Simulated scan of single mutants.
Amino acid sequence: MKTAFLLATALAFAPMAARAADDHAPLRFVLIPKTVHPWFDKVNTGAQAAADLLGKTTGRKVEIEYRAPETADVSSQNDIIERAIATHPDGLILDLLDEKGNHATMLEAVDEKVPMTVFDSLPPEGMDITAVGADFCEQGTIAAQRLAGLIGEKGEVAIMIGVPTAPNHTRRAECERATFARYPQIKVVATGIDNDSIETAQKQASAIMQAHPDLAGWVACDAAGPVGIGQAIRESGRTGKVREVGLDNLNDMIALIRDGVADSSASSRPEMQGYWAVIAAWQRALGQKTPKYIDTGIDVLTKKNI
Rank of each mutant, 00 (worst) to 15 (best):
K2R: 14
A4D: 15
A4P: 02
A8L: 10
A18M: 01
A20W: 00
H24K: 15
A25R: 15
L27T: 11
R28H: 13
R28K: 15
F29D: 05
I32A: 01
I32M: 02
I32G: 00
T35C: 07
K42T: 09
K42N: 02
G46D: 03
A49D: 12
L53P: 07
L54W: 02
K56Y: 08
R60Y: 09
R60H: 09
V62P: 02
E65Q: 15
Y66F: 15
Y66D: 02
A68P: 06
A68N: 00
E70N: 12
E70V: 12
D73H: 03
S76A: 11
S76Q: 14
I80R: 06
I81M: 07
E82R: 15
R83F: 07
A84P: 04
I85P: 02
T87V: 03
I93A: 00
D95H: 07
M106S: 13
L107H: 14
V110S: 12
D111A: 07
K113M: 15
P115N: 08
T117S: 13
E125C: 01
M127S: 11
I129T: 09
A131I: 08
G133H: 04
A134H: 01
F136W: 06
E138S: 11
E138D: 13
I142Y: 08
A144P: 04
L147C: 11
K154Q: 11
G155M: 12
V157S: 10
V157K: 01
M160G: 07
G162T: 01
T170A: 12
R171I: 08
A178H: 10
T179I: 14
Q185V: 03
I186L: 07
K187E: 15
K187F: 05
D194L: 08
D196M: 04
E199G: 11
E199I: 09
Q202T: 12
A207W: 02
I208Y: 03
A211I: 12
P213C: 06
G217Q: 01
V219Y: 09
V219F: 02
A224P: 07
P226H: 05
I229Y: 01
A232L: 04
R234E: 14
R234Y: 09
K241S: 11
V242G: 04
V242P: 00
D248S: 04
N249E: 15
M253K: 09
I257A: 00
I257K: 00
R258Y: 08
A262I: 03
A266H: 02
P270A: 04
E271K: 01
M272D: 03
Y275I: 04
Y275N: 00
A277G: 10
I279T: 05
I279M: 14
A281W: 14
W282V: 10
Q283V: 01
Q283H: 13
R284P: 06
K292L: 06
K292P: 00
L301H: 05
L301P: 03
K303E: 10
K304A: 14
